[in-house]
Every structure is written in structure tokens, then in C-alpha cells.
């Protein structure tokens, strides 16, 4: 639930967001803020980079910013 304060940075969670709509790296970081996940900034960078490498989402530029997205 949104109130649990227990958001986890997982491949499944990232996949869900990117299937819903294109997002920038910063958009994703906002969803997985360190204060919500309990990870350090460095861990967040490493884990999110690994997840994005595995998912290998398509990219498109919207308003001059690179967005990632996944087709269902």
C-alpha cells in the first residue's frame, strides 16, 4: 500500500512503471527515493542501472529529455 513506507527497488516495480508510461531516469529516481527504499544513493544508482541493463527498455526523446519505456 502507498502508506506502508516500504517501497522496494525491484526489476518488477521498474518494469511496471515503464510499461505504464515513458519515464526519465530522474522520474524513476523519484519513485524510488532513498528515504522510501532505505537504500543509499550509491546502492540506488547501482541497482537501478543493473535493472535497466537487464530490461533494456526502448528510448525516446520527449521535450528534449531521454525517456525509457517498455511495450507490454
Amino acid at each position: 500500500t502507498p502508506c506502508s513506507g516500504d517501497i522496494q527497488l525491484t526489476e518488477e516495480a521498474v518494469r511496471r512503471y515503464l510499461t505504464r508510461k515513458p519515464m526519465t531516469t530522474k522520474d524513476l529516481l523519484k519513485k524510488f527515493q532513498t528515504k522510501k527504499t532505505g537504500l543509499s544513493s550509491e546502492q540506488t544508482v547501482n541497482v537501478l542501472a543493473q535493472i535497466l541493463k537487464r530490461l533494456n527498455p526502448d528510448r525516446k526523446t520527449i521535450h528534449d529529455k531521454m525517456h525509457f519505456y517498455l511495450k507490454e
Partner: peptide, 20 residues
């Protein structure tokens, strides 16, 4: 802060671009 988020985003994108 937003500048920290900028740095984190830049680090992630740099790692992805190395990968590609």
C-alpha cells in the same frame, strides 16, 4: 535534493551508455 538526483541520474545514464 534535486541536484543529488541529477548526479544520480547522470551516473546511471553514464553506466548505461558504457553498456551500449
Amino acid at each position: 535534493s534535486s541536484s543529488e538526483a541529477d548526479e544520480m541520474a547522470a551516473a546511471i545514464e553514464a553506466e548505461l551508455n558504457d553498456f551500449i
